[in-house]
């Protein structure tokens, strides 16, 4: 198991220009667990993730990693502990999978240091973990969406961080690829003890795959806890403004949310 890092947000306020998105938010990420953040569009879940990985400076409050403000930590030092996969990363034209995954080694390399055995091993392990070994010498732009997403996750794995934040890692993927990616992240959490925090769109997949569910509404944490505590009909109404029926998922025993909509009635 890796050492467990504490990532917390204290009284955090975030925004762009004249728009405040997050206000006075408190959050403690469960170490060594999988956390999913859900909420309506534009509720600030991605903004929160960006701020937790230092991409956005807070207007007020702070994000602390093991008691230190992330915005004041040296960039590379932070990048060795905390990784982030943004929603739409860009692949340079023609780059091969293994070169792209190798970019994940950046925080471990100095200006003058040469490529090491540790770097090659980390890349190889990341390729194996994401089942992309056979793609290693292919160009990233030739791959399908699902393959490409696995490659990006491989890059984040090669970074070998104890905490990994992912912004909607399953967007634009077919359902089988969504499940594949989430299974992979679960593997990662179970075998390496990596703390995973992901923003997800699909409430049911979020509830299925996380240990800790955080629902954001009105710039604050509306509810947080185990999926069965958080994913309730009341929460769905408060967070998404949607009437729903929450039943027990026959496969996992967790909650499963069924939206009702205007044209259907609850039996």
């Amino acid at each position: 198991m890796t050492t467990e890092h504490q990532l917390t947000a204290e009284n955090l306020s975030l925004g762009y220009k004249d728009r405040t998105v997050i206000e006075g938010l408190e959050l403690a990420v469960a170490p060594g667990r999988v956390t999913a953040i859900v909420g309506a569009n534009a509720c600030g879940k991605s903004t929160l993730l960006r701020s937790m990985s230092r991409l956005l400076s807070p207007r007020a409050g702070q994000v602390l990693l093991d008691g230190k403000e992330v915005h004041k930590l040296p960039a590379k030092e932070l990048a060795r502990t905390l990784g982030l996969l943004p929603q739409s990363p860009l692949a340079p034209e023609g780059i091969t999978v293994s070169d792209l995954v190798g970019r994940g080694r950046h925080p471990h390399q100095g200006v003058f240091s040469r490529w090491s055995v540790a770097d090659d091993t980390a890349v190889a392990a990341a390729l194996e973990a994401t089942h992309t070994v056979e793609l290693a010498d292919r160009a990233v732009d030739e791959l399908s969406g699902g393959q490409r997403q696995r490659v990006w996750i491989a890059m984040a794995l090669a970074q070998e961080t104890d905490l990994l934040l992912l912004d909607e890692p399953t967007t634009f993927l077919d359902v089988q690829h969504q499940v594949e990616v989430l299974d992979l992240l679960t593997d990662l959490n179970r075998s390496r003890g990596t703390t995973v925090v992901m923003v997800l769109h699909d409430l049911n997949l979020a509830a299925r795959y996380c240990d800790h569910l955080v629902a954001i509404a009105g710039g604050k944490v509306h509810a947080a806890g185990r999926p069965c505590e958080v994913l309730t009909e009341d929460t769905v109404r408060a967070v998404f403004g949607l009437d729903s029926k929450v039943i027990i998922d026959p496969t996992s025993g967790g909650p499963l949310m069924l939206p009702i909509g205007r044209h259907h009635m609850v039996a």
């Binding site: 960039a75 932070l78 990048a79 060795r80 990363p89 340079p92 950046h106 925080p107």
Partner: peptide, 12 residues
Amino acid sequence: QLGDDTASALGV
């Protein structure tokens, strides 16, 4: 080249 967010997450 990977985008500002990715680069920043990689410690640039």
